[in-house]
């Protein structure tokens, strides 16, 4: 192919690709905008993916019972020392010593949302929830107690 025909083809190819670009951007221009207008759409169109890890919470059943056997695996799995499980032992009817959960403390401020604790839990007692609006004015308010007063281990033990 001669230099001149290549040059003429350059005009056509150039114009063609430029028009493709213009068509693409015009399509984007006419498309519905993807911007989330956050505080306004909080109760309407806000979409948080189901698996988004925002804060740790305990799983409670209908009677308000948790599934934690106070084994402390989550506490050991945590790289940041975010979780502190306080447990005590008591004898059950058969005279066996059994651990039970007294207090489950979780420091949101030092959590890095790696989900190692949830993966370590053998009973599915904890999970990450979508409640992402966690900003507070004092650091102390980030120290959360996930266990509830009066809540005991669910009869089934695990989920």
């Amino acid at each position: 192919m001669s230099k001149f025909t290549e040059y003429i083809k350059g005009y056509w190819n150039g114009t063609g690709t430029l028009l493709v670009g213009l068509r693409t951007s015009m399509r984007v221009f006419l498309r519905k905008k993807v911007t989330e207008q956050y505080p306004e759409n909080r109760h309407t169109t806000l979409h948080i993916p189901e698996r988004h890890r925002a804060t740790l919470e305990m799983v409670y059943d209908e009677e308000g019972h948790h599934h934690c056997i106070a084994c402390g695996l989550c506490q050991m799995a945590c790289p940041n020392g975010t979780i502190r499980v306080t447990s005590a032992t008591k004898e059950d009817a058969e005279g066996k010593k059994k651990k039970y959960l007294v207090k489950y403390e979780y420091d949101l401020g030092s959590c890095m949302f790696c989900q190692l604790c949830v993966n370590a839990c053998p009973h599915g007692a904890i999970r990450f929830s979508n409640h992402f609006e966690n900003a507070v004015f004092e650091r102390e308010k980030l120290l959360l107690t996930l266990s509830r007063e009066g809540s005991v281990l669910a009869a089934s033990g695990s989920k």
Partner: peptide, 13 residues
Amino acid sequence: RVCGAFQCRIGPN
């Protein structure tokens, strides 16, 4: 506004 629309966002509002 036009730039925003071409980038699929809203622009100053």
